[in-house]
Design a protein around this nucleic acid. Structure first.
Length: 651
RNA sequence: GCUGCUGUAGCUCAGUGGUAGAGCGCGUCCUUGGUAAGGACGAGGUCAUGGGUUCAACCCCCAUCAGCAGCUCCA
């Protein structure tokens, strides 16, 4: 007798071994129909799993556990795609094919390059397999047997996968008739019951990928796809992707004339007048808020003698990413980081504990020779400006300083409405300097700082810098790729290397602790992030052009000029659209350029010194006195309001 | 850096072994207008660069450069 406990604590009894699918059938035909997998004592497994002891069972359906079902569906779809590719290209060697965040991929080794032109054929072949509704059948084999079998088949990737897999028995999944052209793959599972359960799928892209991420290994072909329970969901996802692409900062940078890149300087951004307005507004705000937090600002040279970089350790650890040059037969390097220069400033005079904590900021322009393949718009460049700062303090001040930096960081991000940020704490790596005690002290200080704010964070074990632990702030771009913004790093190395000291209360010289921190990270990257975050529609204080005056016809151009001059004198960034277009076209153009406020003016407005304000993204308008508009706009700018709130301000 | 793809007008892209096209934008003119594209005409291209194949190359081949996707890196 076997008792099976269901999630609602009901118990079903069976005379002998029974499959999970049969239990589902017994509970109800509708459940059996919807079921994709089972959880036996919490362990996800196939519906075909035989139950031969007393267990807890949960039948997994798209309704009960959508995330798990989507993963299962995609993993199974990866098998279907692999089968399709093997059918089409018989010398394909399979490597590895998991479900990933928005779909799945399968890595293959095949001499013939797969190109997007092949996708249609692959999808057609997949469709055949799905239409045939072939069951996924699991079988298990002892490890030695598996190795013998795989050796005979001669696929080194699967052999290595098997070697890495845990346990004495390994599993295979077969789709199709073992006697007749079936497909099988070494796979942990579980899978959905049969291929017909895959609702809608699409082969998305192909790219290279190293086996096990090892750059010394052969480059494989990684084919990406996605799958959903229904065509409707797939279409929705594809539509979302299209919409996200429209937010891409590289596209908006061109459309809004913010910046450009040129062959003559790969990885070096050129900022246009519009981009510089956003840049300067951003930094005005940054300087203002840092001044409030008692930071002082310095500026150090971009090119410094190579000796400095030997002393700082960059020569040993960072040489590959640095640019070098010769001046008067001496070797110089272009700085990839600001800290060594900052250390020289620190050492320019003696320091007392009374000055601590000393917060020294630098908007430092750094150059890093990044590999050509990693360049990516403003997100990954070879020259960028860090909003760097180095805080020199005593060990017992680390925690409160870190809390101070975190508060400042969150406040700055909030000013931009950035709330989808995630944090990581990186701890001591294998290769490190400094004693375990000092690492523990610093790491605990970071943990306490995180705790005091109640921030959620992930731990990146062993991923700290060799000189100290760190907290990183990350954001995702419009296509889901994540990028680091801010960082807080405790450093035990640089003060030693540069023999930095302060005189303590007891009149002895001691080493200061140095905290490196950046909040925006790279100004370039941060601009890219907010361009995507706002989809180019900046809040008023950041908008390159804040107001556009749109005369109904030439007859009102003169009033337009009058308004234009008044707005300019009120420090509003505005233009006057005197083009020989109808008002519709002017509005369309202003919207396309994401202008926050459009002032439509004709004879009616002119008569009473009014403006008809049209707000970006809205169809309605409000007619108010020109001076009132100016006052509202100035207030909104001063507040750095996130939303265009003229409507509520005028109530 | 690696693998694959791409490079044609300012932008988005079509196209052919016999020296090029559309839409948008831009310019001029008509029009003088009331809330998301009024109309007409016109100017703009060594088809990324350098080699090669060919009677002939934007098209085929090779290399270089840059961009895109991913991997690795960075963090």
């Amino acid at each position: 007798m076997i008792s099976i406990t269901l999630p609602d604590d009901n118990v079903l009894e069976f005379d002998g071994p029974v499959k999970a699918s049969e239990v589902a059938e017994k509970i109800g035909p509708r459940l059996a129909q919807d079921a994709l997998a089972a959880r036996i004592d919490g362990q996800l497994c196939d519906l075909s799993t035989t139950i031969d002891s007393n267990i807890k069972l949960e039948i997994v359906t798209p309704k009960s556990d959508p995330a798990t079902c989507t993963d299962l569906l995609r993993h199974s779809c990866a098998h279907v795609m692999a089968q399709a590719i093997c059918n089409l290209y018989s010398d394909t060697k399979l490597v590895y094919g998991p479900a990933v965040e928005n779909g799945f991929y399968y890595d293959i080794d095949l001499d013939r390059p797969i190109t997007p032109d092949d996708f249609e054929a692959i999808e057609a072949e997949m469709q055949k397999i799905v239409a045939a509704d072939i069951p996924f059948i699991r079988y298990e084999m002892a490890r030695e047997e598996v190795m013998t079998k795989l050796q005979a088949e001669g696929n080194r990737y699967k052999i290595e996968n098997a070697q890495r897999a845990q346990g004495d028995t390994l599993s295979f999944y077969v789709t199709g008739d073992p006697a007749n052209n079936c497909f099988e793959d070494l796979c942990l599972g579980p899978h959905i019951p049969s291929t017909g359960r895959i609702g809608a799928f699409k082969v998305m892209s192909v790219a290279g990928a190293y086996f096990h991420g090892d750059a010394s290994e052969k480059m494989l072909q990684r084919i990406y796809g996605t799958a959903f329970a229904s065509k409707k969901e797939l279409d929705k996802y594809l539509h979302q992707l299209e919409e996200a692409k429209k937010r891409d900062h590289r596209l908006l940078g061109r459309q809004l004339d913010l910046f450009s890149f040129h062959e003559e300087g790969p990885g070096f951004a050129f900022f246009h007048p519009n981009g510089m307005i956003v840049w300067n507004e951003l930094l005005d705000f940054w300087r203002h808020i840092h001044n409030d937090c008692d930071y002082k600002e310095i500026r150090t040279p971009i090119i410094l003698n190579e000796k400095l970089w030997h002393q700082s350790g960059h020569w040993d650890n960072y040489k590959e990413n640095m640019y070098f040059t010769q001046i008067d037969e001496n070797e110089f390097a272009v700085k990839p980081m600001n800290c060594p220069g900052g250390c020289l400033v620190y050492k320019s005079r003696p320091h007392s504990y009374k000055e601590f904590p000393q917060r020294i900021a630098e908007l430092g322009l750094v150059h890093r020779h990044e590999a050509s393949g990693v360049l990516h718009g403003l997100f990954r460049v070879r020259q960028f400006t860090q909003d760097d700062a180095h805080i020199y303090c005593m060990p017992d001040q680390v925690e409160s300083e870190v809390i101070g930096v975190m508060n400042l960081t969150i406040e700055i991000y909030r000013t931009f409405g950035l709330d989808d940020i995630y944090l990581e704490l990186s701890t001591k790596p294998e290769k490190h300097i400094g004693s375990d005690e000092i690492w523990e002290m610093a790491t605990n200080a970071l943990i306490r700082a995180l705790g005091s704010r109640g921030e959620k964070y992930a731990i990146n074990e062993g991923d700290g810098a060799f000189y100290g632990p760190k907290i990183d702030f990350h954001a995702r771009d419009c296509l889901g790729r994540s990028w680091q913004l801010g960082t807080i790093q405790v450093d035990f190395s640089m003060p030693d290397r540069f023999d930095m000291t302060y005189v303590d209360r007891d009149n002895t010289e001691k080493r200061p602790v140095m905290i490196h921190r950046a909040i925006l990270g790279s100004i370039e990257r941060f601009l890219g992030i907010i361009i995507e975050h706002y989809a180019g529609a900046f809040p008023l204080w950041l908008a390159p052009e804040q107001v556009r005056i749109l005369p109904i016809s030439e007859k009102t151009n003169e009033y337009g000029e009058n308004l234009y001059n008044r707005l300019r004198q009120s420090n509003l960034r505005c233009t006057l659209d005197k083009a020989d277009d109808k008002i519709n076209a002017k509005i369309k153009r202003a919207h396309d350029q994401r202008i926050p406020y459009m002032l439509v003016v004709g004879p009616k407005e002119q008569a009473d010194d009014l403006v008809a304000v049209r707000i970006r993204g809205q169809k309605n308008q409000c007619v108010i006195k020109a001076d009132m508009f100016v006052a509202h706009a100035q207030k909104e700018i001063a507040e750095r309001a996130l939303e265009l709130n003229l409507a509520e301000a005028s109530d």
